[in-house]
């Protein structure tokens, strides 16, 4: 087994549990000090990715829910690399994806925003990084949507991403944003991240990744917590 060098959440870039501007944190943030546990074999447990059977269209949200026609909206392709804090690639790790459609509406039953559901777009998918830690998925650029945090609150357009990495401490759920969104400065969830970390949540447009006559290209690299030198053996 590889030696495990944990690193904590970096307070210079990570949001706090409690941020009163994001009102739902007030009754949900732990209030007592966290306790440091003794390290355990169990902390190096990851899901068994070999047990996961991904569908052939899981990485293409523009196709994986088609009923009668292509979904509406701006087709995009997102590329990125997943590494640890030393810049070492994290190969063969699962990325789960969910998002609103181009009108800013989630298919989720709880979402009551009066924008249209796209019958050809579910807004969920997944992919696995390759041997060099690279990933790619196709989707439709999501729209902004309103929420109830404060009067006239709107979330900037974003894609939710869930990653595992090699150990329990590398688990990450984050949101990828789009460049120059005018809603950034009004969004308490984005601004809960300290200034130094905010740019890390914003993808970059890349003409070289753009597929001619097909999809605009964006890059979003992801750094998971941890320094362990050898990839986790998920056997």
């Amino acid at each position: 087994m590889s030696s495990i060098l944990n690193t904590g959440f970096d307070p210079e870039v990570q949001p706090p549990y409690l941020d009163t501007a994001y009102k739902s944190t007030i009754l949900r943030a732990p209030s007592k000090p966290l306790i440091m546990p003794k390290k355990s074999l169990s902390d190096t447990t990851g899901p068994l990715f070999k047990d996961f059977n991904l569908g052939s269209l899981d990485h293409d949200l523009t196709k994986n829910a088609i009923k009668i026609a292509e979904p509406l909206g701006e087709r995009i392709v997102v590329h990125g690399k997943v590494t640890n804090e030393k810049g070492q690639p994290i190969p063969h790790t699962l990325i789960e994806i969910w998002q609103a459609n181009s009108a800013g509406r989630y298919v989720h039953k709880v979402d009551q925003h009066a924008a249209p559901i796209d019958p050809n777009f579910l807004g969920t998918g997944r992919c696995i990084t390759d041997a060099e830690g690279n990933y790619k998925f196709y989707t439709i650029k999501p729209g902004a949507y309103p929420w109830g945090n404060h009067p006239n609150a709107w979330r900037p357009a974003h894609i939710h991403l869930s990653l595992f990495g090699n150990q329990i401490s590398s688990r990450l759920i984050t949101q990828m944003y789009f460049p120059n969104d005018p809603l950034f400065k009004y969004d308490p969830i984005f601004n809960a991240v300290p200034p130094k970390g905010r740019d890390l949540l914003v993808s970059t447009f890349d003409l070289n990744l753009t597929e001619p006559s097909f999809a605009l290209g964006y890059r979003f690299n992801i750094v998971l917590r941890g320094h362990n030198a050898t990839p986790f053996e998920n056997q």
């Binding site: 959440f9 870039v13 810049g87 709880v110 979402d111 579910l122 984050t174 970390g197 750094v223």
Partner: peptide, 15 residues
């Protein structure tokens, strides 16, 4: 490398 910041799972993760 700086860690990618965490963001909330939000209310709409289920699907």
């Amino acid at each position: 490398q700086l860690q990618t910041p965490s963001q909330t799972i939000g209310p709409y993760f289920a699907y």
